[in-house]
Design a binder for these strands. Structure first.
Lengths: 213, 213
DNA sequence: CAAGAATAAATTATCGATAAACGAAAGTCA
DNA sequence: TGACTTTCGTTTATCGATAATTTATTCTTG
């Protein structure tokens, strides 16, 4: 049937994840193993394993003998991410300052891309580049454990939700990243860390205020 | 055969985890699905799912079609945990101070238990109560995301390794927690956070220095 | 008619067997 | 000899079927 290089499990997992992130499956929807297996023309096993992985990633939750459902991300949970993010990214920026050695070209590019996306009115692209900016800093710090923890917060999936809710002027949003970039360019890790922390905390508070769900 | 209330998968996972933590399986050891299944008298499926869960938890690593091995925790990784821990626990302590409302009896009990363990020369118990002290603070902060991230660091498993390597006087170790407790009793979240951060960072540096592996 | 038992329907958990992929060892040809 | 195939044993990945469990429905019985 289909040409496969990756394992079925991997493929199914990616398809299901896409559907969850794009809202095709809504929170609370049941994900029935045999039903999905039938759709893809596979057996139950790889579907089952996919669901387990998605469970570990926090996108679905399951109860023994009762099956899996798409996990609802509560407003509270969304808000709780920010203090953790802020603390982690502060550490990342502090370490990254030295390791970047003033080379902030990649960060510069992301800010530029944010402006372009703002011009195009492409909210999705804007979020992607925003997240990429933060990820660059996290990656630059060189601490693998920190990187893994940051990824486990699934910022991509959550930022999109946040941005849609808060309605900030897009160009302003892009420019807010500049002071952080300048501090990193100057090699001032302490300052960069403090700025980044405030930056993230600022959005955390926005999300809290925007609780009109 | 045996009477079971939990799923096979859950049971197998726990047994395998115990073996890994107790060193029965050494880092790098292969975990062969059918071999384990045969030992427990089950089929391959539940073993397979157990291994996947342990992989998600970071205790084993696996490559497609090549199987799973016990993951080696490098000295570097061990050291990298501390900055992250320090940042997270600082946030936790700051928030916990208000929510505890001065009730630090549980924390008091853990310090007492550490001293008892020190008297008995029971290093394992000492580590457990040390970890419990930190966990109490993390739990008290009420931020679920923070709690989950902290747990994902698997402090229990790593602290044991660290303590064994650093050789601190046990009663002194216990007493080092007291200033944090006092700050929490006084409701001073900022101070508690700063103290806790320093406390954790201190151990991070100890681990770095103790690199005689 | 309501509470509880018994049954039926749906779905997950586990099984045993087969197919696919990998790594090592043996074989081939310049 | 040495690089490239081929073969073979091992182990994972997937399959189709069955057992176990839950939920919904129907049937009692007072």
């Amino acid at each position: 049937m289909t040409l496969t290089r990756k394992s079925l499990r991997q493929q199914i997992k990616e398809i299901l994840l896409t559907r969850i992130l794009q809202g095709e499956y809504r929170p609370g929807d049941r994900l029935i193993e045999l039903q999905i297996a039938q759709e893809f023309g596979t057996s139950q096993a790889p579907v089952r394993e996919s669901l387990r992985e998605l469970e570990a990633l926090g996108f679905v939750e399951s109860v023994p003998y009762r099956g899996a459902r798409v996990r609802a991300v509560s407003q509270q949970e969304l808000a709780e991410v920010y203090p953790v993010r802020a603390a982690i990214e502060e550490v990342a920026a502090r370490t990254a300052a030295a390791r970047l050695a003033g080379d902030v070209s990649a960060l510069e590019a992301e800010i530029a891309a944010m402006h372009r996306a703002a011009d195009d009115g492409d909210l999705y692209a804007q979020v992607c580049h925003d997240v990429a900016f933060h990820r660059l800093i996290v990656d630059a710090c060189g601490n693998r454990v920190l990187q893994e923890v940051w990824r486990s917060l699934r910022i991509e999936a959550r930022t999109l939700i946040s941005v849609v809710k808060t309605e900030i002027e897009p160009h302003h949003l892009a420019d807010m990243h500049r002071p952080i970039l300048e501090a990193l360019r100057a090699g001032d890790g302490d300052l960069a860390g403090r700025l980044l922390r405030q930056h993230v905390e600022f959005f955390g508070e926005l999300v809290l205020k925007g609780e009109h769900a």
